[in-house]
């Protein structure tokens, strides 16, 4: 009785991937004259969204438990500000600051996770408090924009180009353009792979799915639901901190308004990537593709040149609707089969 193993969940992911490919191919055809076909255009999407990829990976874990974490955007802003002020005003060295930020992330996640898992408070409320706190803290640390210029290690890391041995082309002036990646992309991709393996092959990862599937059952089956939830929120904040460092390596500055709405980008990427808001279904590769779709949309809008950038929001909104409707249709089909 071996049947095909494609169920509606993997079908959702498949649709996401196909959509991305179609969208990107369409962009290549329409905007081939504007350089959309170059490998670097694709790599730039990765470079611009490296931070978001890390954040979305954490978000996916939290959403798989049926929760949500809307503090991540503010946390990224706070991380950037600490890095910028720490380097420029306090004169600390960047490796120390990076470790500090990761520690802050863990502590931040512990507090939020404790409130959610052990005090049974709604994740939305708890992380909203976290959001306000981190955003406020950013302004308390410094109210002005601080650009990072003085730390050697940090500027070197930011400027580091990892050139690829293929995909080069000659530009109009006849200079060879070699496609490259930034260190942040490598970090982000490693994060995705590790989170994927963690979700699939560890007890912790499977417990996350179980809780999202049916929390009461998970409890009755003897899983430690509270501890797993706490860990998921710690993981989210920790990955957000890694994302914050990547984000800062990209912008090289700290401002109070940095990364506003990043949490929504992370959530929408996860949803487009096939993660259910109710939990239990989804995986981190889907979220990566979700980020890429969002990145492709804004890249297309930018390449067009005539459209204002807000159009990318509208297209994202339409896509989001499309995926949510698709999810509910699949859920209905599944129910009616019973």
């Amino acid at each position: 009785m071996k049947k095909t193993k494609i169920n509606s969940n993997s079908l959702l992911l498949l649709i996401t991937v196909v959509l991305f490919v179609v969208m990107y191919a369409g962009g290549c055809i329409i905007y081939s004259s504007k350089g959309f076909t170059h490998l670097q255009t694709f790599l730039n999407i990765l470079i611009n969204n490296a931070g978001l990829i890390c954040v979305a990976s954490g978000m996916t874990c939290v959403m798989l438990t049926g929760g949500i974490d809307i503090s991540v955007g503010s946390l990224v802003a706070m991380d950037c500000m600490i890095l910028a002020v720490g380097i420029e005003q306090w004169g600390w060295s960047s490796p120390v600051l990076m470790v500090l930020i990761l520690v802050i992330g863990v502590v931040f996640g512990l507090v939020q996770g404790f409130c959610i898992a052990y005090l049974d408070i709604q994740p939305f409320i708890v992380t909203m408090a976290g959001m306000f706190f981190a955003r406020g803290m950013t302004a308390v640390i410094c109210r002005n924009q601080v650009s990072i210029v003085s730390d050697k290690i940090f500027t070197t890391l930011a400027g580091l180009k990892i050139e690829l041995p293929f995909g080069g082309y000659m530009n109009k002036k006849g200079i060879l353009q070699v496609p490259y990646l930034r260190i942040t992309v490598i970090v982000a991709l490693i994060v995705v792979i590790l989170v994927y393996l963690m979700l699939k092959y560890t007890k912790f990862g499977r417990s996350i799915y179980a809780i999202g599937g049916n929390q009461q059952s998970a409890t009755l089956m003897g899983l430690n639901v509270k501890k797993t939830k706490l860990k998921a929120y710690v993981l989210s904040s920790f990955l957000t901190s890694i994302g914050g460092i990547c984000y800062c390596l990209n912008t090289m500055a700290g401002t109070t308004q940095q990364a506003t709405g990043l949490e929504m980008n992370a959530i929408s990427s996860s949803v487009i990537g096939g993660t259910l808001l109710t939990g239990g279904v989804g995986n981190v590769f889907g979220s990566l593709v979700g980020v890429l779709i969002n990145g492709t949309i804004s890249s297309l809008v930018k390449t067009n040149g005539k459209l204002i950038s807000s159009w990318s929001n509208i297209i994202t909104a339409i896509l989001l609707c499309f995926f949510i409707i698709l999810q509910s249709v699949f859920a209905k089909i599944k129910d009616s089969k019973k």
Binding site: Y209, N214, M221
Partner: peptide
């Protein structure tokens, strides 16, 4: 049924 519908049968049997 106090099991997790989104996990495989094997996992439902052995999770934990």
């Amino acid at each position: 049924v106090n099991l997790c519908p989104n996990l495989s049968v094997a996992e439902n049997l052995y999770i934990g």
